[in-house]
Each structure stands twice: as C-alpha cells, then as structure tokens.
Design a protein around this nucleic acid. Structure first.
Lengths: 332, 332
DNA sequence: TTGAAAGCGTTACCAC
DNA sequence: GTGGTAACGCTTTCAA
C-alpha cells in the first residue's frame, strides 16, 4: 500500500498539516522539521495523491488539448510544444480527438470532463459562433486557429495575411495562373475560408483576374487528399503555373502527383505550402511555405489559459502570432 | 457552482446513493426512479467529479503515454491510435515526453504520477534492464518497442525480421553494396541494434561480405539528421547501390540529399525505410518501407494495461506484432 | 511554527 | 430497490 501524509507525519513525528506545508512550501517550516519530514517522505517513497488534492482544492493540474486529428505531423508539432510549455508550468496534458465533429467539439467546450481538467485548449474545425450561447458558463478555454469566437480566448496565425503574402511570392517570377488547393466544400472550415480570402486579395492587388476553376476543392487536408484532388484537376485542366496548397501536408501530395505527371517543380509549376512542417526543407524539392512558431502559439495558449484559471470571468482576449515566408527550391 | 450528486438527489427526491447507482449502472434501478434521476441530472447539467471518484475507488480512468519525442509523424500516428483505442475503453490519455532521458523514463516507471494515472504506456529509448530492480513495485505499465524488459509487459514489432526482410528486398535487383542509415553511437538504443542485427543476418544469408563502412551512424532519427549523415558519407565514399534507412523519417532526409546530389532513386540508389508512415506513399519517389499496424500495437498495449490494472501481479507478457514489406517506386 | 478537526464529492458496505 | 453512514487523502480553517 502506498504511503499517505498520515504515514509520513507519524514517521516524522509531526502532524499531517506540517507534511502538507513542507510539500507545498507555502507556509514557512523550520529547517529541522523540514529535514525530518523530507527524510520520512523519501523513506516511505511518498507520492502525493492527485485525486485527493484535486478534490480538495478544485485543481487537478491537468489541462485538456483537443485537436481534430492527432495523426498528422502538424498535430505532432503542436502537441509537442504544448506539452513542453505546460510541463514548465507544472501542468500535465490530456489529449482528446474531435475528428472534425462539431458535436464533440461543443461537448468538450461546454460540459467538458469539467472536473478532471482545469482548462481546455481546443482547435475546432467546424464549431460555429452560434453554438456557444452567451449565457453558458464555459470552463477556462482557449481556441486555436481562426478567431471566430469572441466569447472565448483565442490564439491564431494571420491566415489571411499569410495566404496573401505567399500568393504574391508565387507571382514574383511573373506567374499569373496561380491555383489554390484545399478549398473545402463539405466542411464549414474557417481556416480554408481565410486562406481563400487572402489568395483572392492578393490576386486583386496583382491585377490577376479571379478564376474559380483554379480554386481546387479538397476536403481532406492530407497528402492523399491533396494528391487525389490535384490529379483530378489535371485530368481536365492545363497545369497551373503556380500552386498554393493550404497546408504543407497537401503540398506533399501535390509534389508527388506533379512528379508522377512528369511536371517539374518549380520549372513547370511553382509550389508553396502553409505551416512549414519540420520536414518541409527535406521535401523533393524543398518546399516553400508560410512559417509560424508552434512554440509561440503554445506559450500564448497556456498563458491565456492560466490567466483564466486564476481569474475566471476576465474578458476574453485574442492573440495573433506572426508568420514568415520561407523561400525554398519549390518556388525557384 | 457545479451540481453534485446531492443536488441531483434532492431534486429527484432520492438518496445520493441512488443517483450513483443510476450513473454507474451496476445496481438495478427501477425505471421510474431512473427516469426522475436522469431528468434531474439533465436539468442541473450534472457532471461527475472525477477527482472524487478517483479518490474513492482508486481509479482515475486516466492512463499516461510517454514517448521520447512527440514532435515526429510517427509519434503522431501512434498517439492517435492509442487515444482512439483508449477512448473506446472509456480511458483518457495523458501525455508525457521523455526526451530520450533514461532518468525521466525511469522516474515515470517507478514513482509515476502514481496516483493520478491508472497505468503507463512507455516507449523508452535508453532504459536498460538493470535500472528496474526486481524488488520494486511498479505501476501497471506496458513497454513499447524492443523487448528488453522481461519484468514488464511489452509490445513491439519484429525489428530483426523486418530489417532482414527489407535488406533482402533491396538485394533482389542484384544490388550488393547495401548501406544502412541510423546506427547509433551515443545512445544505447535497442531499436537501432536490432535493425542492425537484421541487416547483418540478411547479408550473411545473401553471401554479401560485411563492410562496417556501410553502416552509417546517425544519432538523430529525423530528416535533418539523416540528411546530414548521408551527405557526410557521400563526401568520402562512393554512393551505395541500396540504402536501408532505420526509419521513414531518416529516409526522407536521404531522398532529399540524393536528389540534391543528382543521384536517381531507384536508378542509382534504391532506398527503403521502416515504419511506413502515412505520407510515405507520397514521398518523391514513393518510399518502400517495412509496415506494421499502429492500431494493432495500440490495441495490444491498452489491452495488456487493462489486464494488469484488473489483476496486479499477473506475470508479464510480451506481444510481437507482424510486419509487411510495402514495395514502392524507391526500390524500382 | 505546529496540531486538531472538518470537509471536498463520490461510492462501498450494510441496513431496511 | 433504496437509504444512511463512513471513508478515500488531502488541505484549510481555527486554536494553541
């Protein structure tokens, strides 16, 4: 059986309260007592019971991270940073997968495993504003991605700006037939919308007429989905001069299809992505992308969450992290 | 303030125990009572307090998953499957990152956050047998990867067999100068050792003399590490006819370097990996790899863990999941 | 600076 | 089938 505060207290000849004081370090304890208690803890291999602590003071030291698809490289990079940052704040991270299901997203946000986790970092895909009624009491939560919920804290990239900048970068070599890959039809995805908007704004600024044919639909933002969508496009259309893929994962699929079709990148088609995944410099050819710091996002998200936990009802706040274009071989 | 069993009981005119019975469904409850209680729960938006439940019955419904590096695509695929399988067993997953630190691995395994999680799935890199003394009482734990701990449950692939099979596959076209990428020098990594062993066994079977020069050292199993190691090799050696990379991530780095060096794959060098990541079919060229089911691993790991939780002290068990060679363009 | 007692929300045990 | 009571391990009063 595992040792409890009582066991430690008995062995150290103190009261349970004193043991607690030593463990938590809030109240000063005399060095001699502290020494005795610490020795007793070591001897009994004492580990605090987090359930009991959580029950007593309403905090578990656990936060939940909910992402639509955990299997992607992007999720991995984000999870990694959030776990690391949370660890630095002595928080553990519990993982949830929402699978693009708005119902599941909403459920987490409202009911939550409300009493197991202190707060929630959520990357919703299809959660729309109206779902969260203003009256509801929400758990401390931070939304990742496009800012659409002004009721909750949010952290996101400037998707419109990034899309505009990368579209302009693709146009630099004089290319004007610029396509995008990743427009969503069946899902109401804010990220796809904002990136489309940035693309269109760039076209307007460049004086390039908008051609709806060049907005390639792809509901699955994975290499397989991107490959299938682009392959379908090439069956009925001339290749574009440039292609902006809404994520690097989509771009990998695109590069694969272009290589198979005997089209050279960037000779025939310049290709760019968004996210700048860790492996994008090692794509063939190395992929130009819109980069932003996952660490930065993680830090802001955890910080905002802790602020909310400490001060419920503080007004919601939005943070936008900056992006940067990384030019590599895929755009020449 | 959040509703408790007492609030629900009062509203439904029953005792707290009855509410508990309804929630847990172990003891039969009359339909009428059940109806009243469920209505009261809905009305009060009742959510059970997991800390209290955990304190009371010694189970939290949380398991920990500890991986060396969460940022890799492989981790993402594994995490995804384990979270899904655990979810099916009504378990939540808490994530830990060990960063190849044996100290951290050992700490998790022995002390653990012992009272917050019911069990632990651990993918150790450098944990050696001797670290875990036979006398220690360990929490329920399952080790992922090479079977080296016969004190604990384990789930792994047949790394030796996979490495041998892929080496033989690389030799099929008559190639005899076959190199490997991913041998570890600074880390005592079981996976690297077993894959090296499989490679050497295949060479012996094929009658190909062993050349230590062709065992390329690379301590970092990422595209960047693989690229750097292979680039260094090519500076002082002729290119091999075939290259077995110990993971697909390493292979991505290798493909990138070979393309930059103007070497064709598979024309000049056939390349194969291990893991068969989701994006490997979309590498340029599509990557041949040793495949195994992450889902299978997840199912076995969670199953073994649950068995242990239900029956502490049952003798440790080892599971080996099968592999399969997936031939793609990178080997012709 | 330390001790005693109460209570967090839940469920197991035992009565009815 | 249902209700009381006690206990899980911890921390927060309040006293000394």
């Amino acid at each position: 059986m595992r040792a409890t505060v009582k066991d430690v207290a008995r062995l150290a000849n103190v009261s349970p309260k004193t043991v607690s004081n030593v463990v938590n370090g809030t109240v000063p304890v005399s060095p001699a007592t502290r020494e005795r208690v610490e020795q007793a803890m070591a001897q009994l291999d004492y580990v605090p019971n987090f359930s009991a602590r959580g029950l007593r003071n309403g905090r578990t030291g656990l936060i939940a991270l909910a992402l639509p698809d955990l299997a992607t490289p992007f999720s991995a990079e984000l999870v990694h940073e959030i776990v690391e940052v949370a660890h630095g704040e002595r928080l553990a991270v519990q993982l949830e997968e929402t699978g693009n299901d708005p119902q599941r997203e909403l459920e987490l946000l409202t009911r939550a495993r409300a009493n197991l986790v202190d707060g929630l970092i959520l990357n919703p895909v299809a959660l729309d504003q109206s779902a969260v009624a203003p009256g509801m009491t929400l758990p401390p939560a931070v939304i990742l991605g496009e800012v659409q919920q002004d009721i909750v804290d949010g952290v996101g990239v400037d998707s419109v700006g990034g899309a505009r900048a990368i579209t302009r970068a693709l146009a630099e070599g004089g290319r004007r037939r610029i396509a995008i890959l990743g427009v969503m039809r069946h899902v109401d995805a804010a990220t796809a919308e904002t990136r489309t908007r940035g693309y269109r704004e760039a076209l307007a600024e460049l004086g390039i007429p908008w051609d709806p044919e060049l907005e390639i639909v792809c509901d699955e933002w994975q290499p397989a989905g991107g490959a299938a969508a682009l392959a379908g496009f090439l069956e009925t259309h001339e290749p574009p001069e440039a292609l902006f893929c809404f994520t690097d994962s989509l771009a990998y699929g695109a590069l694969s299809v272009l290589a198979a079709a005997g089209l050279s990148v960037p000779g025939d088609v310049a290709v760019a992505g968004f996210d700048d995944l860790a492996m994008s410099p090692y794509a063939v050819p190395a992929l130009t992308s819109v980069a932003f710091s996952r660490r930065h996002i993680a830090e802001e998200a955890v910080r905002l969450l802790l602020e909310q936990i400490d001060d419920r009802g503080r007004p919601p706040r939005q943070v936008v992290v900056p992006f940067e274009i990384r030019r590599r071989a895929s755009t020449g």
